[in-house]
Design a protein around this nucleic acid. Sequence first.
DNA 1: GGGGAGAGATGCCGC
DNA 2: GCGGCATTTCTCCCC
Lengths: 244, 244
Amino acid sequence: MVDDFVKRVREALARKETITIGARCNIRYSGRAESFLDKGDRLIIIKQDGSMFVHQPEGLNPVNYMKEGSSHSVRVENDEVKIYSTNIPKKEFMYTTIVKPHFFFSQKLNDTEKIVIAGNEKDMASMLYENPSLIEEGFKPFSLEEHTKYGFIDIFGTDKNNNVVLVECKRYTIDFKAVEQLQRYVKKIKKEKGIKNVRGILAAPSITPNAKDMLHDLKFEFKKVKPPKYLEEIDKTQKKVFEY
Amino acid sequence: MVDDFVKRVREALARKETITIGARCNIRYSGRAESFLDKGDRLIIIKQDGSMFVHQPEGLNPVNYMKEGSSHSVRVENDEVKIYSTNIPKKEFMYTTIVKPHFFFSQKLNDTEKIVIAGNEKDMASMLYENPSLIEEGFKPFSLEEHTKYGFIDIFGTDKNNNVVLVECKRYTIDFKAVEQLQRYVKKIKKEKGIKNVRGILAAPSITPNAKDMLHDLKFEFKKVKPPKYLEEIDKTQKKVFEY
DNA sequence: GGGGAGAGATGCCGC
DNA sequence: GCGGCATTTCTCCCC
């Protein structure tokens, strides 16, 4: 019984299939940290690229995992199945002791598709670049998401009085880290360009009280902007798919 | 065939079992962003708590997912199986169209164990608290990982000249964000306590060049410290488990 | 490979 | 719920 299970796992590993195992097991990990998880029923996944995941029956994240490129060997010791997983370059190790296998399935999966995502920070910056009046009347952007020597600046432009304007977009609530980020860029530009008047604008749907205080101290500005969510693909094929 | 598959999925959902499906499918998501993933072979997992994951055959992270508390309903449309997943409180929606199911398994999993992790930042702070000479001779810590009104400070203490010392630990390379974090704490303490001499020390295994410059400008100090990795549990039961 | 920044980040704790 | 911060964060891009 155990021998059959081991044989199937070994063959699936050799064929580089995607493996799913349900089993009662315990896990030891050593690498960037060390961890131990005592016996319980879990879902174990080993992917074709060598990555491995242990999922408890609840929770979003795997409780233990190994990254791409890990090697796995299976042995039987004292009627228990042990999976030894190693990732030598990353110096990570994981040992899974299977007390009782519940189910096993493996299959070669074919998938060359890549996910298309809309509504990230870049899309938000693009929207503001295309519609500069969302920042303010007279704003003229002239650079978008560029690795300048002043840093990675979301939108760079001038206002109606020809002041240099630097816009930092955030999809979520601005905290003081975002304000500090903007401060770094503004400081650098003032220094390297030798100009005094550089306006800093934070564009986001909301801002924390602490960040607002810091922003006022630094004479920066906050512009309330809702991030765009619009997947062209979806609109083309099927309108309002996601309404309910 | 399709009807049987649908029946099994529905029953497993009703019984709140952990579900694993191998299938050729496409995915649409709308929530914090919007995404589309065209047809390919994937692993689909639905957990007992309503969370759901779609894994491509390679890669560490799920390509799509729904969080805990999501509801899932299954329908047949044009010989395809559609899983409609909704999370109303979070305003998130995911539609999985299964073109061809490869396998299905479901089971109630029992697991009450919690993972024990050693070697995180808290352990590092504790180590330095217990062995203050690792920071410097004469260092006297008097508070550990405390949510003070000055912020969440790793270690708070005094040096041999009775200066206030503030230590921020990082398990990994210090970057300028960590320096800014320390700066916030030091500023706040100087202001609220009305004292001038507050030393700031960053304890970590390494530091980036930019962070080092910033640290020198701010007259802070860097102390090279290796984070501890030691799981008592492991040492008690089995010495040097992770040697190879 | 390191540095810097975003992520559908998540998870934890405290208020 | 929000705020602040760590995470075995991961991922991407650029140098």
